[in-house]
Design a protein around this nucleic acid. Structure first.
Lengths: 196, 196
DNA sequence: TGTACATCAGTGAACGCGCGTTCACTGATGTAC
DNA sequence: TGTACATCAGTGAACGCGCGTTCACTGATGTAC
């Protein structure tokens, strides 16, 4: 709780992290100034040393959430079958059950649709995912077709997690995730011959 | 603006309709008591003759939005190729550009994920869509496989509209819609032979 | 290496606005006779 | 078919709470000499 410049940067970072999680968990109205500061170990008065307004915080937090290379994307590329890894991670229950640290395309989709300030960050993330999947699918086929398939894949991934989070029945929720995983997995099976 | 019982029912219906649109356009925080009443041609004081609280209105409006058989589902079944009709309507720019009257699976997905009061209505709509698509896909294949494919289809539809609304670039937005339309269309082409 | 001073991150009381909620009242509806 | 009365949808002023924002103040940091 010092007063050094490094401390300030650390404080700001902590506040943004908390708000970035809250915004995904509860939407843009989620992070309250006093609550967020308290969770960061500070009092509300100092808030305006870091942000010009609550809205400033919320937008920056949402943009940060969208810019974040979550576990979803990064970890998936570690395995030797990165496409299968992406499916497993993105469509896993761990991702579904932790929206606060999950892909912001799902949690902030509706908000981006109505808030111009988020659209650029949202679009960037969409393009990043399309490119990631394009790279994973690339099998020498027509680039336009691969791109179409990548868009299709990303849409299905995002939709599946959105739906899986919204339903009450855990069985149906799991079923949605595995259905999409099965379908996407079968359409790009490395054990199948790729001579099309 | 009479005081009859029929008028009361009409008022309530008008208020709910407005809130049901607002909730899809702006989220659960969208409909304000005074605004909504004013738009319905009433003053805010009478609000509590219809609803016990603002939260009551919002939940009922969201449930109504989820229960609504929007153009998306109904119109699609009119044509002689209902599956193609569904794709065209759901993935059309008309649907994308009018979230207030569009499918609530897209607009209220995140909210349903965090609000227990919405989960049942959300789940019902998910099941309704799965069954609709199951019926349209049914070609004598393994029922479990058809169901899996239906879930996949619904996920892609919902995800595509969510993404298409969130990006700034209209080209990318259109591309997402047509990509998913193409992919879903080709996997169930009535002109192709179904002997797989 | 100390000492004086300016800066500024952080504090917490106070303010004020937006908005949900309450309430006394109005007058049309509809029922009893 | 009228008349008196009860009900209740709708009105609009007033209230009060939550919460974002302001501000005078504190004390640690870090710079000047």
């Amino acid at each position: 709780m010092g007063h050094s410049q490094a401390d300030k940067e650390a404080s700001r970072h902590r506040v943004l992290d908390i708000a970035s999680r809250r915004v995904r968990e509860e939407g843009l109205d989620g992070p309250k100034v006093a609550d967020t500061m308290r969770e960061a170990g500070l009092t509300h008065g100092g808030f305006y040393k870091h942000f010009t307004s609550r809205e400033d915080l919320v937008i920056q937090a949402a943009i940060a959430a969208l810019a974040e290379n979550g576990r979803t994307m990064s970890r998936a590329t570690d395995t030797d079958d990165p496409y299968a890894g992406l499916l497993a991670t993105y469509l896993g229950t761990g991702h579904r059950d932790d929206p606060g640290h999950g892909c912001a395309l799902v949690t902030l989709g509706a908000e981006a649709g109505r808030d111009e300030a988020l659209k650029d960050a949202y679009e960037k993330r969409v393009r990043a995912y399309i490119e990631l999947v394009t790279g994973l699918l690339a099998d020498g086929g027509d680039p336009a077709e691969v791109r179409t398939e990548a868009m299709f894949t990303v849409s299905a991934l995002v939709g599946a997690v959105l739906l899986a989070r919204g339903v009450r029945d855990p069985e149906l929720s799991n079923e949605l995730l595995t259905a999409v995983s099965t379908m996407l997995g079968s359409r790009h099976d490395p054990t199948a011959d790729r001579t099309e």
